[in-house]
Amino acid sequence: MTTPLNDALPAVEPIDLTRSKTSSKTIMSVSLTVITGFFTLLVLAPLVAVVFDVAREGLPRLGLESFTELPPPPGLTDGGFGHAIVGSLITLGIATAFSTPFGILAAIYLSEFGRGSRVAYWVRFSANVLTGVPAILAGLFAYSLVVATMGNFSAFAGGVALAVLMLPIVMRTAEEGLMLIPHEVRLAALGIGATRFQTITQIVLPAALPAIATAVTLALARAAGEAAPLLFTALNNNFWSTDAFAPIATLPVLIYFFAIIPFRAQQELAWAAALVLLGIVLIVSIVARLIARQKKY
């Protein structure tokens, strides 16, 4: 094969297509890239610092007694925050019991019955606005509804406050999971004579189960870290309690109270409790996101 062009002389004037390394465009491009790259590091720095500092301060104080003992009276040392872990589990349990069936059934309406309807539009809109309602206002709501009515602070009131926060998260995430199930699968079930109820409960829900589990887990991770809605609903308790209708200690509230009092032993406990809380929340968030990535369809 011969080259017919034999590097013929260019007929037209040669041209300069280079850009100087010092042109204003080059300088602008390079500096913007450097600045945004620096911003990225800046955003990551607090995450690294918080995890590192909480581990450094919390680890030395963390031991078996952290989970089994009560905090010491002011002035004394040692002790733990076992009652707050139990209290957190109880309030979260109450919140999950309210928000999960509620949120999932609403999600089923949105994905299975109400697609494109005006009702669905407004429900979705309300859920998005509800997501933006500050956590402390969920606390005020539960105070006004439960505490003021029943006359005392309680784990139950705290659970109601957390349920308000979890509800829109459960619904929207579960809805997204249900939407991912291809429409053909529903048609196939209906096409061989299954009713809507059978199609949803036996085909769609099982297929969307990982997504729904993710939805509940993400909502739990969010609620587990909230102190604001519990301050005047579950309040606090310095002793062991499993009574749903009595004040109860929770990890976030305990951290708050121990962080702002001037006793070294309590502050150390706050760091250890923060380590436990941060560890649980981060691990749950990571696992939930990893599960969410495994798509069935």
């Binding site: 260019p10 037209v12 004037e13 040669p14 041209i15 300069d16 297509l17 280079t18 850009r19 465009k25």
Partner: peptide, 21 residues
């Protein structure tokens, strides 16, 4: 690929300048 005798894929050629022409 030469444009007016200049190899468009030369290392000193700026793609942005090419696209303006």
């Amino acid at each position: 690929i030469s444009y007016r005798g200049k190899d468009l894929y030369d290392s000193d050629v700026d793609a942005v300048e090419v696209r303006r022409r």
